[in-house]
């Protein structure tokens, strides 16, 4: 297996060990990411506990349908990402490239819908620190809810943009025939990152959009 030998860095016994080390590195990084987002989720939970009524009122101003559609779009992108890894494992270059492009398109659709939602918030004067002046009566602390909304969805969107960049790198490497059925750790590691960003949204959706009944 001269090809496998060439892909193995000199500090590893074999390609399988290198592959495991690559994945381990991503899991350690995601551990730090969980603590980062955990801090945001915790801050959100504390203030939601203290000012529940204001958070509920703020939540009901979000577009639940757009949020649900976006959740489905992101889950679909995770599915195509999983298929990308499958194609890489089987050494099918064409399928890999198709699935990677589909993942990037679905990710862009998510960001586009998020952009539409942000546009609505600006239109309705719901942007704390810039233009917070909602129509009619609103609870005194509703701006706090929207601060959390923009910071949490904004940090998530930033991770999506980073993910799109990573996918582009994987796409270029795939087009250059840099992956084989044995050597494709990059696809797997980027896949794990992409799924993690999906999981963050899986928790953001109920916490931000689904407070109380509508």
């Amino acid at each position: 297996m001269p090809e496998e030998l060439a892909a193995t860095a000199h500090q590893f016994e074999d390609l399988a060990q290198q592959h495991e080390a690559d994945e381990l590195g991503m899991w350690v990084f995601l551990g730090t990411e969980v603590m980062f987002f955990g801090g945001l989720f915790l801050g959100y939970t504390v203030y939601r506990h203290v000012y529940f009524g204001a958070f509920e009122a703020g939540s009901h101003l979000l577009d639940l349908l757009l949020g649900a559609v976006n959740t489905s779009v992101l889950i679909a992108s995770s599915f195509t990402m999983a298929l990308s890894v499958y194609a890489a494992q089987k050494g099918r270059k064409k399928t890999l490239i198709t699935c990677l492009i589909l993942t990037m398109i679905l990710g862009s659709v998510f960001l586009g819908i998020k952009g539409v939602e942000y546009g609505q918030k600006f239109h309705h004067h719901l942007v704390p620190g810039y233009d917070f002046n909602p129509e009619g009566n609103f609870p005194a602390h509703m701006s706090l809810y929207f601060s959390f909304y923009f910071i949490m969805t904004g940090m998530h969107a930033l991770h999506m943009i980073v993910g799109e960049g990573l996918l582009l790198v994987v796409l270029i490497l795939a087009a250059k025939n840099r992956f084989t059925a044995a050597h494709h750790a990059t696809v797997e590691v980027v896949g794990i990152y992409w799924h993690f960003v999906d999981i963050i949204w899986i928790f953001l959706f109920p916490l931000l959009y689904l407070i109380g009944g509508r």
């Binding site: 639940l64 949020g67 649900a68 959740t71 489905s72 889950i75 959706f205 109920p206 959009y209 689904l210 109380g212 009944g213 509508r214």
Partner: peptide, 11 residues
């Protein structure tokens, strides 16, 4: 996702 959204419409 559909179930959790549907439950969101019920108090």
């Amino acid at each position: 996702t559909g179930v959790t959204t549907a439950v969101g419409y019920v108090d």
